[in-house]
């Protein structure tokens, strides 16, 4: 009987609460609406300097059918994946040492040092790297000075330089997310593993590493999203060749005001980010820690 009355209870939705929900309106105005406009424009054409609402998929056909445009997407994925992998490989030992090998009283200072790259302006940081890796730069002068090389190494301008600039920034970001994860792992897990006969290496690979996956994935995802949408670093360090998708978007906007084609690229970029999120979302939860 009680079950019956419960099932008959009318569904009540408080529309006024939702209508005045600031976060919802903010999201609608500044995310959903612009996204819808961008999506709509991607089906338009730019004809003789004017936008024409043709509602066709010609821009998508052109983007996916042109090697040089698709290359910008594959270059972006290549650079971003490489950046993320190298950053994780560098960040994990750093975070591990910070969390377990450094006395607690100086952990705060070292974390402060770790976030220092974030305090420098993005453009300044990129140009600074040029001063280090250019042919007359600090590194080449040093290597020549100690007699290790005769001819300067060509390090500036290319995907390698872009990855270097990215890694400098994202290693620290990923270090923070992994560190925050590691310090939350209960020591009882290690004690239990040790009691069961596991050595330090086995404990690391069977307990610590699996439990720190959420920190790695969160850091990797943030890095991936920021890096794949970044324009400044590839433009300055990459040298404007083998362009990435944000550069291709800028080219369409700044040189030709071709917003429909730029929208196609932006929608594709967004689809890649959503796909990466869908793959990584289940690994971001820290329930077991």
């Amino acid at each position: 009987m009680a079950k019956e009355s419960k099932s008959l209870k009318p569904l009540h939705i408080d529309y006024t609460r939702w209508a005045f929900h600031p976060a919802l309106w903010f999201t609608i105005c500044f995310f959903i609406f612009p996204l819808a406009v961008m999506l709509a424009i991607s089906f338009w054409q730019r004809v003789y300097g004017r936008l024409s609402a043709t509602w066709d998929v010609a821009n998508y056909v052109k983007f996916f059918g042109s090697d040089y445009l698709i290359d910008s997407l594959t270059n972006s994925i290549e650079v971003t994946v490489l950046t993320t992998v190298i950053s994780i490989l560098l960040a994990y030992p750093l975070a591990y040492i910070l969390a377990f090998k450094v006395p607690k009283r100086i952990q705060g200072i070292l974390l402060l040092v770790a976030v220092m790259p974030f305090w420098t302006a993005y453009v300044v940081r990129s140009y600074s790297w040029l001063l280090v890796i250019s042919e007359n730069g600090i590194l080449n002068v040093f290597l020549k000075g100690i007699g290790l090389i005769d001819q300067p190494l060509e390090m500036a301008y290319g995907q390698g330089a872009t990855v270097l600039g990215f890694v400098h920034f994202f290693t620290m970001l990923i270090t923070l997310t992994i560190y925050a994860n590691l310090v939350q792992i209960k020591s009882s897990y290690w004690k239990a593993a040790a009691d069961l006969g596991a050595g330090p290496v086995r404990i690391f690979f069977r307990v610590t590493l699996p439990l720190s996956v959420p920190g790695i994935v969160v850091g990797a995802f943030i890095s991936f999203v920021i890096a794949i949408g970044d324009y400044i670093t590839p433009q300055i360090l990459g040298g404007g060749t083998d362009i990435l998708i944000p550069q291709a978007i800028m080219l369409q906007i700044s040189r030709a005001a071709n917003f429909p084609m730029a929208s196609v690229m932006a929608v594709t970029l967004m689809a890649v980010v959503v796909l990466v999120y869908a793959i990584s979302a289940k690994h971001m939860k820290m329930e077991r820690v």
Binding site: S134, E135, N136, G137, E154, I236, G239
Partner: peptide
């Protein structure tokens, strides 16, 4: 032949830095 493509400041930097 092309090492880089850039705006005025970028190409100036590349020339002055010896790249």
């Amino acid at each position: 032949n092309i090492k880089m493509v850039g705006d005025i400041v970028s190409v100036q930097n590349a020339l002055v830095n010896g790249d």
